[in-house]
Amino acid sequence: MKHLLYISAGILLLVMCLLFTSQKQQGAIAQTHTTVTEDDTTPHEKSKAIYYWRTTFNLSEQEQQFLQKHDINKLYVRMFDVALEREEMSDIWEVVPIATTQFISDVPEGVSIIPTTYITVDALRDMQYNEERYAKLIVERLLAMARYNKCGEIKEVQFDCDWTQTTQSIYFELCEKAANLLHEKDIELSITVRLHQISSEAPYYVDKGVLMVYNTGNFKSTRTRNSILDIEDIKPYLKARDYPLPLDYAYPTFGWGIKFYNNDFEKIVTNPEYELLTEAEYIRIERPTTAQILEVKNAVEKTFGKPASGNIIYHLDQKQLSNYKDHEIAQILSYN
């Protein structure tokens, strides 16, 4: 029994790393349209997109079928995180790429890849005065990975960062330098936009933004109903405003359990059904329903307008997606 607990804990840690260490969430420019390439896309047609947020790119058969079934033609693939790490030999802290995604399966035909990277705030802080150098390293590495792993023609690259007021100028500088490099190659730079960033400025030179409409609540609080998505948590941000970048919207199609001990947050569990509970423990199951997602979608579009390119879902994971019916996914991705 203990083994089961350990395994569960291990899986949980892994998921936490994937979901929280990175705190990634992104959007995409989707183009609704069943044809495959950007070249074929007419301006009024929108695409459908999904995030791929694991350290191994290995699509299962069901996941490939999912892409086909829903005409998803854009895949935002996390390539690596940029973090601050101590180099053991020299005992120096340095900004380095970590958790580089290993490509096992081929990129599916007819799907455009948007190489994406998550930048930690610690790393960002350490980049100050060296923004140009790191912009070059990040961009070159993303493109090299795309090239090496035969990701096809790259039209867009995305940065994901939970920047704060104190790191805003560094991030904007980094984006500017990266955009300059990318624009020389006719590649666009998009960024993720968290709800709390929607009222801030946006970095110059960036071409697009993806509003992350998930992880909206405080998961550690017992008063939170659903930390992944709750219209009540989103409402404060829904004030009509001209955000300087064209925006797409990313919606959640995943769930988890939040385990509490004596009303104190204990951990996030990915398989609540396997968790053993004592009398002092309980698990809050969180998984937004399609109705909830559509309610939020409606409210977001009402405030910020239709997505510039299309809708995105987070994220490509067969087990999570199996909780949603095909027509529900279609509704979430639908431009209309």
Binding site: V96, E140, A144, Y148
Partner: peptide
Amino acid sequence: SKWYYPTMD
């Protein structure tokens, strides 16, 4: 370098 990836210039 940790930044290096095959095919990087």
